[in-house]
């Protein structure tokens, strides 16, 4: 949980910079597969959006040179990566670690907003609906990624835990941590 002066770990430039050069289409495709898996596992992710299911959401990790554009859908959710800020109904921006902590229930979204670690633009209702839907689904991105790799998933989890300890980034659901 954050305190007033939380210093969020940022993605090292060495890791972030290659994203300026690599083709984004395959990464977008991989993120879309991951997102569809999450929607299948957590249908509440869509149902809690209510009327905002047709909204578009820009998620902008400010320490990465790309922005994710989410188009929610029960069966054909899409995520695309963009180097230039995409048009969206709502935009949520902050350090990647803050955004991951929000997804994993590590930090409180309002507290991040009050401290201005998180910035919201556009349709505030849509942004709130997305935040609440994600919070209720208790998503664990580490487990979802491991799940994509089939039988190798169990082997992957210790590496995710190690990466979490080394980077200080919340890579797993808060309740799943020791």
């Amino acid at each position: 949980m954050s305190d007033i002066h939380t210093e969020f770990p940022t993605v090292p430039l060495l890791l972030a910079s290659p994203l300026r050069l690599v083709p984004l289409a395959p990464l977008s495709q991989a993120l879309t597969i991951l997102a569809r898996r999450m929607v299948a596992n957590h249908p509440g992710l869509i149902s809690r959006l209510g009327p905002y299911v047709s909204s578009s959401f820009a998620v902008d990790p400010t320490d990465l040179p790309v922005t994710l554009l989410l188009h929610p859908h029960p069966t054909s959710m899409r995520i695309t990566l963009h180097r230039d800020p995409p048009r969206a109904d709502a935009r949520i921006a902050g350090p990647l670690s803050a955004l991951l902590g929000l997804v994993h229930g590590t930090w409180d979204g309002d507290a991040l907003f009050f401290s201005r670690d998180l910035v919201i633009d556009g349709d505030t209702s849509a942004a709130l609906a997305l935040r609440n839907a994600i919070d209720d689904c208790e998503i664990d991105l580490g487990a979802e990624i491991a799940g994509l790799t089939g039988p190798f998933g169990r082997l992957l989890m210790p590496f995710i835990a190690l990466a979490e300890r080394r980077t200080g980034m919340p890579l797993r659901r808060a309740e799943a941590r020791p």
């Binding site: 949980m1 929000l102 229930g105 590590t106 930090w107 409180d108 979204g109 309002d110 507290a111 935040r131 919070d135 209720d136 208790e138 808060a174």
Partner: peptide, 10 residues
Amino acid sequence: RQRSRAYVAQ
């Protein structure tokens, strides 16, 4: 009630 589960738990 409008806050996250992280807030509630803490």
